[in-house]
Design a protein around this nucleic acid. Structure first.
Length: 431
RNA sequence: GUGGGAGUAGCUCAGCUGGUAGAGCUCCGGAUUGUGGCUCCGGUGGUCGUGGGUUCAAGUCCCAUCUCUCACCCCA
């Protein structure tokens, strides 16, 4: 084990033990998205670097220090996607998806950021992203939040808190930024190192500082809410009304600022206190100017992303492996007939999971394997059976004695025995 | 990028003030010569993360490095 090659730091394998939980989670997410009429868009994992640099913002942390970028063989700069929105916008523009139409889209897959790994944060991680294009009003904002709420409910997850804020229109956001830089600039001596850095790049983030020494200064800072223009105020008020009407609990967090440059108006986060420092499970907001900014027509848009590793950790799903219904135990020289019999069963009984024993070994060891695999039935195909054209059926979970049947009748027998045994525990259906 | 904790068998871990490696589970075999689960017996499996240093002697002490982990930063 000493010098064996290892995976890249912060990048992990999802082993067979864990993959059923992923599948189950993904299935619930997809079913809910289907129920809202959202359609899947499959996007490349890498893009030209400028796709991200232009959309996310050159001086954000993501672009300035967290991207996996490399020169390809033509010396073009390519980047492994650190998030999904930029690529989604690129694809939508490239294929005219935003031309005089609205779109409701989702995508699912790995994202890459070169950060120091810690609980709930990895260099390759998975997000499901949901985006709605071409709709300017607060109704679509509310729809997305309701969609989230339904996801949590379907997953059996409670205890998430919804935090909301409005950054205002791009103009009012820019104006507020000036005011804030002014304010913190006058109190530069009271800022910690981090915040001094933020002052240049993302002054709004100072508001979100965890440093207790800065809280007083932050409390006295000019409030974002006081600098919203009328339209921004109306949009935000409209959203709040819709959420209240829908019975959604939320907290307005005036310090909620997102790290990516493209956000304006509504921003929101669903947070938990169960994941240590990584409290955010789902986050998103409006980016009405992004599409123009990257060369498209003015197109309002809003989206959010969910970190699947974080969600999975909260859920503690543990479905266990999919056990075979039938395990075929073979004697020497029975391999051909066993493989045939297995396929015969699969043909006759769709959905049946059949494993043929491969690799030889004593019957004892094969039975052990059948048991370990969780099979409900063992079918024995050895010398006696081959000679008599029969097969021995042995229930492994206490549904009666073993007996011999004609090979041609094997499927019927299996069907009867499985119908008699309660199957649900073997079908790893979500509970 | 910065700081704390940790790396001993495939997995979970023990190994006291340095004397040169152990358990449980898994896997393989046997008790049970066509038959799993329970029990018992036996076996495979470790250059103790890596490299260097101190010492007669290092899993144990020191340094470096890598990885994991938690936190800061930032984010999903």
């Amino acid at each position: 084990m000493a010098n064996r090659i290892q995976a890249i730091r912060g990048v992990s394998d999802i082993l067979p033990e864990r993959s059923p939980a992923w599948r189950e989670l993904e299935q619930v997410l997809i079913d809910v998205l289907d129920s809202y009429g959202y359609q899947e868009i499959r996007l490349p994992i890498m893009e030209k670097t400028e796709v991200f640099a232009r959309a996310i913002g050159e001086h954000t942390d993501i672009v300035s220090k967290e991207m996996y970028s490399f020169a390809d063989r033509n010396d073009d700069s390519i980047t492994l996607r650190p998030e999904g929105t930029a690529g989604c916008v690129r694809a939508g523009l490239q294929h005219g998806l935003f031309h005089n139409q609205t779109q409701r889209l989702w995508y699912l897959g790995p994202m890459f950021r070169h950060e120091r790994p810690q609980k709930g944060r990895y260099r390759q991680f998975h997000q499901i992203g949901v985006e709605a294009y071409g709709m300017a009003g607060p109704d679509i904002d509310a729809e997305l939040i309701l969609l989230c709420q339904r996801l949590w409910r379907q997953l059996g997850l409670d205890g998430l808190q919804l935090e909301l804020n409005s950054l205002g229109s791009t103009e009012s956001r820019a104006a507020y930024r000036e005011v804030l830089v002014d304010y913190f600039g006058q109190h530069r001596d009271q800022l910690d190192d981090d915040s001094r850095r933020r002052l240049e790049h993302n002054p709004l983030r100072i508001l979100d500082s965890k440093n207790p020494d800065m809280q007083a200064l932050i409390a006295d800072a000019p409030a974002l809410a006081d600098h919203l223009d009328d339209e921004s105020r109306a949009h935000f008020a409209g959203l709040c009304e819709l959420l209240t009407a829908a019975g959604i609990d939320y907290v307005i967090n005036p310090r909620l600022v997102r790290g990516l440059d493209y956000y304006n108006h509504t921003v929101f986060e669903w947070t938990t206190d169960q994941l240590g420092a990584q409290a955010t499970v789902c986050a998103g907001g409006r980016y009405d100017r992004l599409i123009e900014q990257v060369g498209g027509p003015p197109t309002p848009a809003i989206g959010f992303a969910i970190g699947l590793e974080r969600l999975l950790e909260l859920l503690g799903l543990d479905p266990g492996p999919r056990q075979p219904h039938v395990y075929i135990v073979t004697g020497e020289g029975a391999a051909a007939r066993a493989l045939q019999l297995a396929d015969q069963l699969r043909d006759a009984l769709p959905g049946l999971r059949v494993m043929s024993h491969c690799g030889g070994g004593s019957l004892k060891s094969q039975f052990k394997r059948a048991d370990r695999n969780g099979a409900l039935l063992a079918l024995i195909l050895a010398d006696d059976e081959l000679a008599s054209d029969r097969v021995t059926v042995k229930p492994l979970r206490g549904q009666g004695e073993q007996h011999s049947v004609a090979q041609a009748a094997a499927a019927d027998t299996v069907k009867e025995l499985l119908a008699a045994a309660a199957l649900p525990e073997t079908d790893s259906t979500p509970q």
